[in-house]
Amino acid sequence: MAEKLPPLTLSSLDKKRRKVSFNNRYGWFFISFCLILLALFMLYPIISSLIMSTFSSRGMISRYVGLGNYKRLLHDTVFLQALKNTLLFFIIQMPIMLFLALMIATLLNNKAIKFRGVFRTGIFLPAVTSLVTYATLFKMMFSLEGFVNRFLMTTHLISDPIPWLVDPFWARITVMIALTWRWTGYNMVFYLSGLQNIPDELYEAAKIDGANALQQLGRITVPLLKPIILFTAVTSTIGTLQLFDEPTSFASGGVTAATIGPGNSLLTMSVYIYNLCFKYMPNFGYAATVAYVIVILVAILAFVQFKLAGDRR
């Protein structure tokens, strides 16, 4: 990531100095607005909540507990449930979605396929809907007597209605389907843009050498798309671990409901943080601790993904 300084071909030291100060003056000018805003609304909250996570509070009273909040997490069954729910989404939904996006992108990059523009627009379209909107839409479609059950029953794929959103297992499946619907096209666009930068000659040469489609995918597409796959994987990880809008919208009763999804099956870590702050007696310190668990998990998972991709930077 480190950028090389401009080559110093100027002979006199004076010119070099003047150039550095010129660079500095405008460099700081252009980034200053952004830095001030980030310091106030990003850096300060990060540090503040790190400090807060060492306090435990009930309403107005708070006391220093050091790492006590972090120890408390280990025995907090609600937290462990939230952790499990969140990780389930990460382990099952994310790989399926990214693989699907890659499949569609490689197909749409094939010049022999007609109507590519139409397919691309249609498949990307879900990405413009808001999280609340599509969650509400899916909640209606997947209701017990709703469209999906009716469709599956009239086509005789199932004989009894599936208890989407009523049964903990199916509630998670429903949210995963909805997430895949919303985000596959979004990731596909990134892959598609990356694929357009891979010269066609590479595939031509591979074909002449007798490589089949699977070999082309494994030997050319995936290695050359590695930086972009990594980018989508890391952003999806961050998104999945922060999951909030979807679970709360799918749960009957919204954020104010007693349990998020049947048997708290949709309770994610971000929802738990919200509950700790705004639903129960506010305990900001403990909420900040849960938030930092997300930070740590994201950092670990991103690190693992970077290592897996063999990225040296």
Partner: peptide, 21 residues
């Protein structure tokens, strides 16, 4: 580099101090 790293911090972690701010 530091600015990019802040992308990893979930909004939930910033929420409480931001709310107080």
């Amino acid at each position: 580099g530091v600015v990019l790293l802040t992308m990893m911090v979930p909004f939930a972690a910033l929420m409480i101090p931001l709310f107080r701010l």
